[in-house]
């Protein structure tokens, strides 16, 4: 599966530079020039990671990431800000549950590494989710089975791996025949 990365910044040059930097990564890179445009893009298709600027006209980066979190909690969020203000940073990190935080000008290697680890995290989470789904499905199947054959889920194996069947007395056999054999 190809991972999609969404870059949001009001400055086209920044978007272009980031695209260039990510040229060799095996991801599909998308860009948006505002928070609103970013949300639109997210409505159309799922993104693995979004990277957003902080200060933009219209919807700010912090708000964009915060909304994205509510609507698409599985998408990981990275903030790339030109403003070194502690206050806005804290707001963004706390409100948007940011995965990583970078200052402009950014260190390319760190950004790429962060994106890679975000993708990896996302894949792990996806795997987790799938595993969880499998487990859920299996457990519901088991429940169905138990309903049809009570006690079947309680089958035990002995040390050699052979199934252990409990001995049934004649009276119990008679009961079973009376119940099912009719």
């Amino acid at each position: 599966m190809t991972h999609r990365i969404l870059l949001v910044d009001d400055e086209p040059n920044v978007l272009a530079a980031l695209e260039r930097a990510l040229l060799d990564e095996p991801w599909e890179i998308h860009t948006a020039s505002s928070g609103e445009a970013g949300l639109e893009a997210m409505a159309k298709q799922a993104f693995t990671v979004i990277v957003s600027d902080e200060r933009m006209p219209g919807m700010g980066g912090a708000e964009f990431l915060s909304q994205a979190r509510t609507m698409y909690p599985e998408t990981l969020r990275i903030l790339l800000t030109g403003q070194a203000s502690l206050e806005s940073t804290m707001k963004a990190v706390n409100g948007g549950e940011i995965y990583r935080f970078f200052l402009k000008p950014w260190d390319e290697t760190s950004v790429i590494l962060a994106l890679r680890s975000a993708v990896e995290k996302s894949e792990l989470e996806e795997e987790n989710r799938q595993l969880l789904r499998t487990v859920k499905r299996q457990s519901s199947e088991l429940k169905m089975l138990e309903k049809s054959f009570p006690g079947i889920t309680e089958l035990r194996k002995d040390d050699s791996g052979a199934y252990v069947l409990e001995e049934i007395s004649d009276d119990e056999v008679a009961d079973l025949i009376a119940k099912y054999g009719g």
Partner: peptide
């Protein structure tokens, strides 16, 4: 602080572009 954002943006993409 007010100007930082304006300066950091171009410096950011110039740096990035230079690396690219």
């Amino acid at each position: 602080a007010g100007m930082a954002h304006e300066i950091n943006n171009p410096v950011g993409f110039v740096t990035s572009n230079l690396n690219s």
